[in-house]
Simulated scan of single mutants.
Amino acid sequence: MNCVWMILLCACFVTVQSDKFPGSIKRCHLKDSNLDDCLTEGIQKTYELLGKGPINAISLVGIEPILIDKVVIGAGTSAVHLDQHYENVKLHGFSKSKVSKVHMDWAKKTLEYETLSPLVTQKADYDLNGKIMVFPVYGKGESTIKLSDVTMEHAVKFKEETKGGKKYLIVDSYTLKININGAHYDFQNLFDGDKLLADNILTVINENWKEVFDDVRSGIEGAYSEVCKHIANGLFTHIPYNEIFLE
Rank of each mutant, 00 (worst) to 15 (best):
L116W: 04
Y47M: 04
L60S: 06
V171M: 14
L116N: 09
S148D: 14
P136Q: 11
S59F: 14
Q17A: 15
G165D: 01
K140L: 05
A124N: 12
Y138D: 12
L197F: 07
A198D: 09
F21D: 04
L147K: 13
L197R: 13
I7T: 11
E160P: 01
P136E: 10
S95F: 01
G62H: 02
N179G: 11
E243R: 10
P22F: 04
C12S: 15
F135W: 11
H92C: 02
Y185L: 15
D149E: 15
K167T: 06
L235D: 01
T121S: 12
T15G: 06
D149G: 11
V156N: 12
I220N: 07
D214Q: 08
H184R: 15
I244M: 08
Q84R: 08
T162G: 00
C38V: 05
V216R: 03
I68R: 02
I25T: 05
H29V: 11
G182C: 11
D105T: 06
N200Y: 02
K31L: 13
I180M: 11
K146M: 15
I66M: 06
A11N: 10
V137M: 14
K90Y: 06
D186M: 11
I7K: 13
S33W: 00
I244C: 03
E226S: 10
F191I: 07
T203K: 14
F191S: 10
G234D: 08
D19Y: 15
M104A: 13
M6C: 10
S18G: 06
T175R: 10
E247S: 12
K101Y: 00
L119R: 15
G219Q: 10
V102F: 03
V137G: 08
A75Q: 11
S117V: 13
K90L: 07
D186I: 09
E153W: 11
E48Q: 06
D127L: 12
L82E: 07
M133N: 05
E247K: 15
I201A: 09
G93W: 05
G62D: 00
I68D: 04
N189P: 01
V72M: 06
A107L: 03
K159N: 09
L30H: 03
E207V: 01
Q44G: 04
V227L: 15
D125A: 08
T203L: 14
I180D: 08
I231C: 06
I180S: 13
N34T: 09
G164E: 02
Q188M: 07
D215M: 03
T46L: 05
P240R: 05
S18T: 10
L235I: 15
G62T: 00
N206S: 06
E207S: 14
D186P: 00
V16T: 12
F135E: 09
D105R: 07
D125H: 04
